[in-house]
Each structure stands twice: as structure tokens, then as C-alpha cells.
Amino acid sequence: MPCGADMGGTVSGDTVTAVAEAEPARRRIESRLTAGDRVYRTLATAGAGATLVLIVLIGLFLLIKAMPALREAGWSFITTKEWSPDAEKPRFGVAAMMFGTLISATVAMAVTFPVSVSTAVFINEYAPRRLRRPLTSLIDLMAAIPSLIFAMWGLFVLVPFLLPLEQWAVDRFGWLPFMKAAAIGASLSNAGLVVSLMTIPIATSIIREVLSQVPRHECEGALALGATRWGMIRTVVLPFGRGGIIGGTMLGLGRALGETLAATLVLSLTFEIKPRVLENGGITVASALAVQFKDAQKMGLSALMAAGLALFVVTFAINLLAAFVVSRSRSGAGVDA
């Protein structure tokens, strides 16, 4: 919160005299900034402004470049699955890729959330004290590993390893509509799993950091009542960290939505909407952009820009929603007696 500079609230003279004549005239409080303050305020404002300007510029760039394609496709851009913008009769839309993006991100988050929270809780509350620092460093290090490494490991190790399990799941639960699969492997859920490899470290790192800030005297309050360690975590640690848990997960989600390599390498790319999440094939916005760019002609390029714009808007909206949720759920967490 900015403090000091703008605290001098102005009181209009009219309202003061209107209230009561007997009251003394209220003074207008002025606070003059020192030269140093003014310099730092300018620097901070410039930094914040540059970030905002950058985001707006990127959005504008995408919008301008996407305009021809959006004019051509109209609202069908949202509902069309196919992607043949450079054909004689162009037909293209983000329906399939947006669907794939959301599904793989959902799968990634379904894995990331529980794994990250429990890893963070383990490191902070259960791990032997001498292992805490090394484990923390390890997680932070993993967050810095290039996603290509995770994608390759996922492609050559994790996905083949999970095939028997997926087959079993399809055999067993195939009667559920979304669990059916003609052929497994290279599916949206595989892509989501590989994405979760990349989102788990970053989410864990943030959540662990937030949970480590829990006031120890509140933890002791729970323990002194006869709570088990888990009881203390449930009543004190997790409620305190709620905002950070959501924030960390959302940062992971941001990465999952934009993740390119995992889907490009793992998925067998098809422009289809596949509600059967275990079935072979699918596409995400980012992977479509990556593979289509090279061969794109004039309209194709514009269409890709439009797809990028769609991803930009969706990511932005989700993060905005997350910020809203976090700001609402923080009540109480920061109360310090």
C-alpha cells in the first residue's frame, strides 16, 4: 500500500461550512515530499507504468495483427474447430485448441494443487529439520529447470510408464463418457501430466514460502489444546496460507495455460474437441501456434495472432479472477493480535 504521499485528504470548504457554523474551519493537511522521496516515487511510478504500458502494447499488437482474421471469421472464430486459414475458403477457430488448453491445464492443476500443498506442508512441518534447507533449495532449483527437460522426460519416461495404468482405467471405467478411449497415450491428460511436472515446483516454492510465515504463537495455541500436528496444520497453517496457496496455484495455472513444449512433444496434434481426456490426440493454443507458424501464409499468420490474443485474454481473465479470490479470502489471515 502506498503510504504517506497521498494521505492528505482534501476537504472541500463548502461541506465544512454546511455542517455547522460553530465548527472551526478544518485545515487542509499538506505533506511536502523531500527531494529523495520525489526521486524514488518517480522511479517506482515509472517502473510500474512501464509494466502496464508493456502489457497494453502487447495486447494492442496482438489485436491489430489479429484484426484481418477476426474480420474474416467473425464469431465463428470462437466456435470453429478446424484450422485452415490459408485455404481458398478459410475456415478456422480456436474452439479445439482452447478446449485442449483448458483440459490439459485442468489436469495439470488437479495434480499440481494437492502435490504442491502436501509437499510444502511436508517440508515445513514434517521433514527432519536438517533436511528442510536442502529440500527447499531442491524445489527452487526444479522451478528453474527448462521446461524442455521436463517435457522430454515426460515423453520418454512418464507417459510410457503410465500407459498400463491408463489402459486399466479405460477398461475399468470406460463406461463413463469421458473415460472412453479408442487409443490411449499422447492424450490431453498426458500433456496435462507433463505440464504438472513444470508447475509443481513453482507452485510448491511459493506455497512453502507463504506457509513458513505462519505465526508460531498461533501454532502453539493449537498444540497447547492437545492438537496433533495435523490438527494444527488444518486449523492454523492452512487457513493462514489460503491466499498464498491460491496465488501459487494460479501462478502455476498461468504457466500451464501458456506451456508450449509439453503439448507439442507429447500430444499427437489434431484439431478436434476430445472430451475423452485419455484418448489419443488433441491440441492446445500454444502448441498450435508453435507448429503452425512456419507454414502460415498471410491469413494464417493473422489467425495465429488471433489465437494468441484469445490465450492472452483467457490467461488475463483467470489471473484477474484469482486476484479477486485471493483478496477476498485473505480476511483474518493477516489479523495480528
Binding site: P215, H217, E218, E220, G221, A222, A224, L225, G226, A227, T228, G231, M232, T235, V236, P239, F240, R242, S331, G332, A333, V335, D336, A337
Partner: peptide
């Protein structure tokens, strides 16, 4: 069996007053 009250009041801030009082029941 041996409860403790601390130097600094440490109610669970996210809980209601009633839930605070009953927290021990739930925790045990």
C-alpha cells in the same frame, strides 16, 4: 489435561468466537 494461556493472546483469527472456544473439542 494441562492447558496453556500465552503471553500474547493467540486466538485463531480465521475462526469465529464460538469456533475458537470449541476448537479444542475438534482438535482433540
Amino acid at each position: 489435561h494441562i492447558g496453556m494461556v500465552f503471553q500474547k493472546p493467540n486466538p485463531f483469527p480465521a475462526m469465529s468466537i464460538a469456533d475458537n472456544v470449541a476448537a479444542g473439542l475438534k482438535l482433540t
